[in-house]
């Protein structure tokens, strides 16, 4: 029984990490139909900037805030310099642009920072909290709380705020959105700032657990992308559920079946779910324009 509890807690921790990364994908996707392959680099930047600002003497909360603001600005720059000039290009070209941008950001990070692994102290210490015979680190609770907070924030944003609705309208039909007076360029800028900011926040929260290095973004983005697709791309519900599900799957497979094939089990389940539900669990049916 304590074993099961430990597996669940581990799954929740890892799942929350995936969910946080997955949530970052949703806004840009909702605004522009682009899956931003540089999302993992935002997560990396969040962690690395915090590490280096903290080493330079800034208190941790200030360093984290700086990391989020700087990363959001980089997100805006990415939109202005690479995505907007390519407006109207086929989606696959836009994907290559985001892949190119991710290579660029990694290349810059290894120059500006270094190639070593880093971490900074957990926010509330490293003393494990006992839960029904199992343990969880306080930082895991921060990550889980962060994922929930971002989820609620996004959900409110997309359903209750005018700006959020404008984002959705822009994605559905850019021209129509412009006709009803939505500043679509501003919507895109905002989406990139928010996505990058959420990515950086994820980086700040997970670094004490996962550690960070200039190239951690690739693996995180891969799992986050898979989680988002499992839940249904574009849906905050989907990102949260997909992330947690993926984490639990890995932990339970590692615990009960084989730690060697835990990643394989996760991808097999993703394939199975997509075969049964081709739009993911919470994905909206999008009709194809003819």
């Amino acid at each position: 029984m304590p074993e099961l509890m430990q597996f669940l807690l581990s799954g929740a921790t890892v799942g929350a990490v995936y969910a946080l990364v997955a949530l970052g994908f949703t806004i840009i996707y909702n605004a522009s139909d682009i899956v931003n392959f540089a999302q993992g680099e935002f997560v990396m930047l969040g962690g690395m900037i915090t590490v280096f600002a903290h080493m330079a003497g800034l208190p941790l909360p200030l360093a984290a805030l700086l990391a989020i603001v700087v990363t959001a600005a980089i997100g805006v720059a990415l939109n202005k310099l690479a995505i907007e000039p390519a407006r109207g290009a086929p989606v696959v070209s836009l994907i290559i642009i985001t892949i190119g941008a991710s290579i660029f950001i990694r290349g810059a990070a290894q120059l500006v920072f270094d190639k070593q692994l880093h971490r900074f102290p957990a926010f509330s210490g490293d003393d494990p909290i006992a839960v029904l015979g199992a343990t969880i680190l306080p930082q895991s609770l921060w990550v889980i709380a962060g994922a929930l907070a971002v989820f609620i924030g996004l959900w409110l944003f997309f359903t209750k705020t005018l700006t959020g609705l404008a984002v959705l309208a822009t994605s559905n039909n850019r021209l129509a959105a412009q006709l009803v007076g939505i500043n679509t360029s501003w919507v895109m800028t905002l989406s990139f700032a928010l996505s990058a900011g959420i990515g950086a926040l994820a980086g700040v929260l997970v670094t004490p657990i996962t550690l960070t290095r200039y190239d951690v973004g690739i693996a995180l983005a891969l799992k986050g992308f898979a989680a988002a697709m499992l839940g249904g791309m574009g849906s905050p519900h989907g990102a949260l559920v997909g992330g947690i599900l993926l984490g639990l799957l890995e932990a339970l497979t590692a615990g009960y079946i084989s730690s060697q094939y835990k990643d394989a089990a996760a991808f097999i389940v993703i394939l199975a779910v997509l075969f049964a539900m081709p739009q993911g669990i919470f994905g909206a049916k999008r009709t194809e324009r003819v």
Partner: peptide, 22 residues
């Protein structure tokens, strides 16, 4: 040397912006 990744990424982005069909 160390600027290789940076340039590679930049070239990919620029080509796709200005020559979007490839």
């Amino acid at each position: 040397a160390e600027y290789e990744q940076l340039m590679l990424g930049l070239i990919m982005v620029l080509v796709m912006i200005f020559m979007r069909e490839g």
